[in-house]
């Protein structure tokens, strides 16, 4: 199925997102909010991932886990603002290999979060501050850390592979 960039941009125009993003401060404001979301996600979920991996032994995993709702809210903010970029200039994203890879890592991170709730939360609730996490939780934490890092890096790389200056090799 071929996705039509004009139809997506039509949605942006109809909802007023296109007009907002094309004001003088629209794009940088949304960009700032997008990065605030990503940084908060990295600081909350990333810190918990590091603790599960063994960094910061002595800090209670349960305490860091209680910051995760901020990470979830931050992801919501990043997703919303990211969608605003996408619908405003869909042709710059749809055929951009960095954006496509970013979506892949986002999907892996999403599945991994589900695995985290199944595998790790039970252990986190019961763990003492000095306890080590089981190997399964460590693997989930490592995948999470790698995925979110990749998402941030690829978000930056999107600007390098802007069509039509760079063509997507598999589009």
């Amino acid at each position: 199925m071929m996705i039509d960039p004009h139809a997506i941009q039509g949605l942006a125009r109809a909802t007023g997102v296109f007009a907002v993003m094309n004001t003088r401060w629209g794009w940088p404001t949304v960009e700032s909010l997008h990065f605030i979301g990503l940084a908060t996600l990295l600081g909350t979920v990333g810190l918990l991932d590091l603790r599960i991996l063994g960094v910061g032994r002595g800090v209670s995993m349960a305490s860091l886990y209680r910051l995760v709702p901020f990470g979830v809210a931050a992801f919501g903010l990043s997703f919303l603002t990211g969608s605003m970029f996408f619908v405003t200039m869909p042709d710059q994203y749809l055929f951009n290999p960095a954006f496509q890879l970013k979506l892949c890592f986002l999907a892996i991170a999403g599945l991994n979060t589900a695995a985290f709730y199944v595998i790790a939360t039970r252990h986190i609730d019961a763990a003492k501050p000095d306890d080590a996490a089981p190997l399964s939780a460590k693997i989930v934490a490592l995948i999470s850390l790698l995925c979110w890092t990749a998402v941030i890096v690829l978000g930056r790389v999107i600007t390098i592979f802007r069509p039509p200056f760079h063509s997507c090799p598999w589009c």
């Binding site: 600081g43 810190l47 032994r57």
Partner: peptide
């Protein structure tokens, strides 16, 4: 991102979120 995110997480903890863990071990970060 790491600097701002980690500092923000610790600030949030300082503001009372994520309690009741003691504050000193956070210095590990």
């Amino acid at each position: 991102g790491l600097l701002l995110g980690t500092a923000a997480a610790i600030d949030l903890r300082m503001l009372g979120f994520g309690a009741p863990a003691p504050l000193p071990p956070l210095a590990i970060f």
